[in-house]
Design a protein around this nucleic acid. Sequence first.
DNA 1: GTGTTAAGCGCC
DNA 2: AAACGGCGCTTAACAC
Length: 617
Amino acid sequence: MRTYPYSVSGERVTVHVPESPTDLDAFRAWVTEAAARGALALDTETSGLDVYSDHFRLRTVQFGDAWDAWVIHFERGGIFADAARWVLNVLRPRVLIHNAPYDWLVLDQHAGVPLEQLAPLTRDTQIMAKLCDPRQPSEGGVGAGLKPLSAHYVDPDAADTQAGLHQVFAEIGATRETGWARIPLTHPLYNLYAGLDTAYTARLYPALSAELSRIGVRRLLAEYEHELARICAVMQRTGMVLDTEYTRRLDDELSDQAARYAAVAARYGVANVNSTAQLAAALAGMGEELTERTASGNPKVDKSVLLRLADLDLHTWEPLGTRTPNPLADAAVRSKRAGKWRASYVETFLRTVDSTGRIHPMVNTLQARTGRMSITRPALQTLPSRDQMIRRAMLADEGHVTFSCDFDAVEMRVLAALADVTRMKAAITAGNDLHDFTAELVYGPGFTPHHRTICKSVGFGKVYGGGVTTISRQSGAGRAEVAHAIETYDRVYPEIRRFAKRHERIARANGMVTVTLTGRHLPLDPQRAYAVTNYQVQSAARDVLGQALIDMDGAGLLPYLRLPVHDEVVGSAPAADAAEIVREIERCMTTSLGGVPITAGAKIGKRSWGSLYGADY
DNA sequence: GTGTTAAGCGCC
DNA sequence: AAACGGCGCTTAACAC
């Protein structure tokens, strides 16, 4: 047995590393006793983050409490792997995990410990921490990592085990990328740090529990978040089928396209279309006037500027016929788009696909400061939606079709409910088109489609906190017209402004924290207190989707779900049963909030996700 | 090589 | 009086 002593909060913590059958007996004896006393902290060390790749290895599984940590060398297999499995499959203690979905999936895939079995035993200290403060470090939050949280809640001198290991990686000639796989299993610091993480997690748990009670976050909210984490981890495990052949072809096509247009740009002296400085200089040399500036004062040459110079419509890219197209701007914007789509989407698909042809995107259930989820590796929430070509790469399972079910204008409905907007609620309940209804209130029965567009933009402006400038830019209407629309809008729906004012005042009295319907505590930036309406609405809409996901799981629909996308779910269903499954999903997404009906509508496509956006397969 | 910032662009 | 909310990812450019 190797043992490594360390000091946490002035107390001795011992990291034990069993090396023999006798050592493992001691480990089992300790686990049995410790599990009888309370929950055990659990952690894993792995070769990387690509849980579903063929070269992924589960290296160690660690168990600990506040004073002792045990590092089990799972990678050695045999009695070592058996010991770890015994704890989780036979003893089944309550466990504390920091960022549990990752360890659930690792143990599910590589240790034969089903996620469905481990999840109900788990308390996730990262979920608890994010409920205490959902902000990222860049926004003034503590940070969701074990190190910053330990330093904040447990011991100011908490070891930065990640940074410590990065240093070790450098010493053995490895990088941050390769170190996790290459570091020898017996490296003393590797074992010390691996063990310490469980000791910190074990100490974080009571501290976070106390903090949640102190600030008054409901227990129910934490339980709901753990359920959602499990549901989304199951979706991640299932993953989506990638049309690999199509994706490879697309990769080549986009690559050609990017190169072809880059060659055109090169003729105008732009060696690199992604260099804004080069583009700006060349365009200026052609006599174009670049009047817009970036935040740092440089000439702005983004997509909207380039499309205007190329005489193309901002959305459709159709020729406008308003000026002589600038050939450099045209080539640059086309080359950049092809390059961006290839690098951000197509290449990530090919890089992350597993050997069975599936993609397992990571779902971060509490990523945004409003509670919204994010999806990474790849970022499947952000695929181009105007063109089907990227989504065409993602398929439903063999014999299945892709479906999507999205809420109808959920943010406006949530706003109507939260702010109790009488006329808006009545219109929604009556089944009227909300923007038509608003346009009639604002402009009278003779309102035009243009008026409707303005009212729609003003509605978005209310949700996002936008002013005259942004609403005018977004709707294409003149400033005066927009200003008048906002004024009238506020008169016909006075409750929205009242809601904003009231919540701003309460937040100020409450340390700049606004509390949502579900009891989420959202810190506001003092200089952006107006964002309170958006936070309330966005967060409540997220929880409407979260509750729907829980209801879908309860109805046995989870096997058909693939992705949550803010106000929609995407899934895969056997072609013959799709209509029925989608009906059930619509039912789970149909609810009401504060007397406002929340409805959802589904679309059933062909096999590819792109078929819902016009693709023919 | 690794890390950071600015700029840009994709989505809801 | 005015205030565009929330993300992830890539490249360029630069610092160390």
